[in-house]
């Protein structure tokens, strides 16, 4: 499988501030790639470099096999882009804007009309005759996605595509993104973890301009899931959690509902050996003890939140 995106030692500085720091990143063609990071991590800067709107301070970035800084129209003809806050010509209607956008890609005639009609239906804007200036932010976001798809791009770059949408709009957008799987590579920046878990195959987590994790989602959760143990006891969960928290191998121990304790561990073998003894010493009964699976949110917090505390 070829790389839709290949960034090598990519850095971008604004004055003395390093927005991206030595980023190495590859995105397989045909995948739906989640680019996660808290606000200010450098996600939008990365997208600006991928679209050629900005130039790297050092390193290189290739998109669909082209060097973005020198490829010009040849690479832009094959990508679709939705910025974080899409801005349109307020005096146009959605249909006029799609007609304009399609024309820039050289679309003409019946093919263009059919594509516009399909995208207007897809974005729920079919039959809307109001000018874009009267649209809600959600409508503009959906039009933004529609215009990004006007050229049936090989690579779709979406910057926070669901941030302005209500739950129904979000679901529709995510379903639309999921429907592109295998046909279009989708590079999807967001800070909404649930969206990434819902549609992405692979994820990279960016924090303060650095990639702190880059793996298929399942691998990432499995990797971090190995470091979490869920225990359920018959009684005295609070005291047991306090006792576990004092152990060197326990990063944290939090009491859950129904006498359960979630333990984040740094040494899984030591935890497995010592937890039964601790349960016995507290005079309580062990109902279950199992490896817990971390959600992406917990992985994210551990990787990003931990570094900030």
């Amino acid at each position: 499988m070829s790389d839709a995106i290949a960034a090598t030692a990519l850095s971008k500085a604004f004055g003395s501030k390093l927005a991206l720091d030595n980023v190495d990143l590859t995105v397989d063609e045909g995948s739906i790639f989640g680019f996660l990071g808290p606000n200010g991590a450098g996600k939008t800067t990365m997208l600006r470099l991928l679209t050629g709107l900005a130039r790297p301070t050092s390193g290189s970035v290739r998109v669909l096999g082209h060097d973005v800084t020198s490829a010009g129209n040849s690479v832009r003809a094959e990508i679709g882009f939705l910025p974080d806050v899409p801005a349109f010509y307020d005096w146009m209607t959605a249909e006029q804007f799609l007609d304009f956008a399609g024309g820039l890609f050289g679309l003409r005639g019946a093919a263009q009309r059919d594509r516009i009609e399909m995208l207007l239906d897809l974005s729920g804007l079919g039959g809307v005759t109001a000018r874009i200036g009267d649209y809600s932010r959600g409508m503009k976001q959906r039009l933004g996605i529609a215009q990004a798809l006007i050229n049936a791009p090989r690579l779709l770059l979406l910057d926070e595509p669901t941030s302005a949408l209500d739950p129904i709009g979000r679901k529709e957008v995510l379903d639309m993104v999921a429907s592109l799987r295998g046909r279009t590579t989708v590079f999807f920046s967001t800070h909404i973890l649930g969206d990434v878990e819902r549609v992405c195959d692979t994820v990279a987590i960016l924090d303060r301009g650095r990639i702190v994790a880059h793996a298929p989602i399942d691998d990432l959760k499995r990797q971090y899931g190995q470091h979490k143990i869920v225990i359920q006891v018959t009684e005295g969960a609070q005291m047991l959690a306090a006792a576990i928290a004092t152990c060197a191998w326990a990063a944290s121990a939090a009491q859950g509902s129904h006498d359960t304790i979630e333990v984040a561990v740094s040494d899984i073998e030591a935890a497995r050996r010592e937890i039964p003894a601790l349960v016995a010493s507290q005079g309580t009964g062990l109902v279950r003890m199992e490896a817990g699976e971390m959600g992406l949110e917990e992985v994210f917090v551990e990787l990003v939140g931990g570094a900030r505390s």
Binding site: T51, L53, R76, F81, P86, A101, L104
Partner: peptide, 11 residues
């Protein structure tokens, strides 16, 4: 911001 949508197309 309208320039962004134009300049990321073949213009």
């Amino acid at each position: 911001g309208t320039a962004l949508l134009v300049l990321t197309k073949p213009v």
